[in-house]
Design a protein around this nucleic acid. Structure first.
Lengths: 233, 233
DNA sequence: CAGTGGTCTAGACCACAAG
DNA sequence: TTGTGGTCTAGACCACTGG
């Protein structure tokens, strides 16, 4: 039959993958149970389990107790984006990073921001505006509101030396985040900051961050025109 | 000390997570080795391994043989986007899906597309233009080139009944994909197709797909203005 | 109720890279 | 060289859920 005893979970994964790709097990079809597969491939059930779990995490098969495993009918492949510190993202491209602290003040957050964070009207917040530069040219504009009740220490940080982005990543743990990608036309202020024409299409990333149930910060990152976010499967 | 015997890998994961969040093990700090942790928490090393592997996959810790595990200095959290069949994405929002086959013809692909796929100039390709609709309103415009040498059967498919997107997902296995997100201003043609103003900012997704080394298809999906892609960590 | 995946264990060997 | 993670095994029990 197949090759001699795989016995490593990667080999089991590849064997299953091969049958899926060969349409021996077409989309929607059931896969033999772990015990049978283990017997057939000559390895322990735990090894098969490890392989099938990996495939399930990739979205290629679906597993349910008692119901067994089947090939995903609609292979929802998952693309994963790394959300790094902006400085490191820029330096990874071989460019030089710098940033400008455009504004920083305690203020009352706009209703939309408070709603996102689930905060009441009178919560004290810190508003920080930062321009991130790559090789001296505008890379992205960051508009951020920080919940001072959750992170009072940031008021004493020198955000012109370390960007708010990096300070928060290094100093404040978070457990949950919420991301939204959108495309927006540059308004007059953003156009000036990003040194681009008004109306240019910008890739905008909005992020809300919590530590368990405690809202930490809301951020909107507007990238300069031409920015492309890339990933592979 | 800590709570009584976790003994489940999620409990081990949470215990480690708690110490990381409490800065007991700050970013960059080493974590005890698996054997020690297992002894301390009163469980098998395999259980600790399972927990630490999960944390490593999330990007919260870094593991290296012989060097041990340490808390990630720059927690590169990973946001994963599901890339579903467009019809299902729309139906999941409770809207009704439909699509229009705008154009379909054998043609020579533009240089840029051929370059992306690594194909020679005289490769026969199928060009398909599709408009995806949600509740009858334009959702996204799909511009697609399919490598006929890899997928000859698609020439006989009725792409007005099943979108090329869905037909390919159901009928052609792929092993590797390449994604790019960008923001672009709508040109006159796209503006007409998407029923929006010229210059509107569009979220554009480009995707190239291979089966092992065989190029399958290149696609550009331009979403109507206002579309937001969302994910959580 | 019973079959399937989910997990834990104890022990073992291996591969890799830091010192 | 040697400590650390990576993995496999055989056996066991549990949790969930479909019939």
């Amino acid at each position: 039959m197949s090759d001699a005893e795989p016995s490593t979970w990667q080999a089991v994964r590849d064997a299953v993958l091969a049958r899926i790709h060969a349409r021996e097990w077409p989309p929607g079809a059931p896969i033999p149970n772990e015990a049978d597969l283990a017997a057939e491939l000559g390895c322990a059930r735990a090894t098969v389990n490890r392989a099938l779990r990996a495939l399930a995490e990739e979205g290629l098969i679906e597993r349910r107790r008692r119901a067994g495993s089947r090939v995903a009918a609609h292979p929802v492949r998952k693309a994963t984006f790394a959300i790094p510190v902006i400085r490191r993202e820029i330096e990874a491209r071989g460019a030089t990073y710098s940033h400008l602290l455009l504004a920083m003040a305690r203020d009352r957050a706009p209703t939309a921001v408070r709603a996102r964070l689930g905060l009441s009207e009178d919560t004290r917040m810190l508003h920080v505006e930062t321009l991130h530069l790559a090789d001296g040219r505008a890379h992205a504009h960051e508009d951020r509101w920080v919940n001072l009740a959750a992170v009072p220490e940031i008021a004493r940080a020198d955000l012109s030396a370390i960007s708010a982005n990096e300070w928060l990543v290094a100093n404040v743990p978070f457990t949950r985040g919420d991301f939204t990608f959108a495309a927006e036309n540059a308004g007059p202020t953003l156009a000036r900051n990003l040194d681009c024409t008004e109306g240019a299409a910008l890739l905008v990333l909005e992020r809300t961050t919590w530590n368990v149930a405690l809202p930490i910060t809301w951020m909107r990152l507007s990238h300069a025109p031409g920015y492309r976010m890339h990933t592979e499967i």
